[in-house]
Simulated assay, not measured.
Amino acid sequence: MHRIITTIYWLLALSYITSTLTTTYSWSFLHKAAPILLLGVIVWKRASLSTRWWLIAGVLSSAAGDMLLALPLKHSFILGLSAFALAHILYSKFLFGWRNLNRLNLLTVSLFSAYLVVMLFLLLPAVGSLRLPVIGYFVVISVMFISALAANTQGYALRLGALLFLVSDSLLAINAFITPLPLQSVLVMSTYYAAQFFIVTGCIQLVKEPKGD
């Protein structure tokens, strides 16, 4: 990714993260989504990017999720959760063409399964009526994560992005349902912006490499 665009992305992300430590303002939902929308422009400009529409749609769905969670709507959490769930489905669809299940190993799958069991054990008693949406969200983010691990690429950006997305969502869930975290907005948003950056970077790198069987 071009150095200038990368710099702009991180400046936008840093400015929003910093703003979460101060007073809220009416257009914060646009500020929050601005770095992700920039990623969408980057993918759009990659005219030769195979099946780029799935990736663009995933990025735009993520931006919609950012705005929905930031807006003072009655059902903003469910709407935002749904948008991010759709983003994970679209990312998974993009990655499907580069799947190579031989890249998965027992240790990684076992560790991820243990993570899921622990998170659901902690969250389900605390989420009340949101139990089904939360379970559904963990299903789709699991599909995205496994798809990233199974992608036929020699780079690490994609896997790092998927891992950081798990970290960000886990921190968000723990803060929302289990216990407040210090500087939660900084922790959640910094890992989130890094996750999106590395996922898109990894997907762009992916198309330059052979597809899986």
Rank of each mutant, 00 (worst) to 15 (best):
M1C: 12
I4V: 13
W10A: 08
W10L: 09
L11T: 12
A13M: 06
S15N: 11
S15M: 15
I17R: 02
S19V: 08
T20S: 10
T20G: 08
T20F: 04
L21S: 14
L21K: 12
T22V: 14
T23M: 13
T24F: 11
Y25G: 07
S26G: 10
F29I: 10
K32N: 04
A34N: 05
A34C: 10
L38R: 02
G40D: 03
G40C: 04
V43H: 04
R46E: 12
R46I: 09
R46N: 13
A47C: 09
S48I: 09
S48L: 14
L49R: 06
T51Y: 14
W53N: 15
W53M: 12
W54M: 09
I56N: 00
G58I: 01
V59Q: 00
A63K: 01
L69N: 01
A70S: 13
A70H: 00
L71W: 13
L73Y: 09
K74I: 11
H75E: 12
F77R: 01
I78Q: 09
G80M: 03
S82R: 05
A83M: 11
A83H: 07
A85T: 09
A85W: 00
L86N: 06
L86Y: 07
Y91P: 01
K93I: 12
F94H: 00
L95Q: 03
F96C: 12
R99A: 13
R99D: 12
N100E: 14
R103E: 06
L104C: 08
L104V: 08
L106H: 15
F112P: 05
S113T: 14
A114N: 12
A114P: 06
Y115W: 11
L116V: 12
V117C: 14
V118H: 13
M119T: 10
L120W: 07
L120Y: 08
L122Q: 11
L123Y: 01
L123F: 09
P125C: 12
A126Y: 07
P133R: 05
I135Y: 05
I135F: 08
G136Y: 07
F138N: 11
V140R: 00
S142L: 03
V143W: 05
M144L: 14
F145Q: 01
L149W: 00
L149R: 01
A151R: 04
N152L: 06
Q154F: 13
Y156C: 14
A157G: 12
L158P: 01
L158Q: 01
L160E: 01
A162F: 03
L163A: 12
L164N: 02
F165K: 02
L171R: 06
L171H: 07
I174K: 06
I174E: 06
I174P: 01
N175F: 10
N175R: 06
A176S: 15
F177N: 02
I178Y: 07
P180M: 09
L183I: 15
T191M: 03
Y192A: 04
Y193A: 04
A195K: 00
A195W: 00
Q196C: 09
F198R: 04
V200H: 04
C203Q: 02
V207P: 05
P210H: 04
G212L: 02
G212Y: 03
D213F: 08
D213H: 13
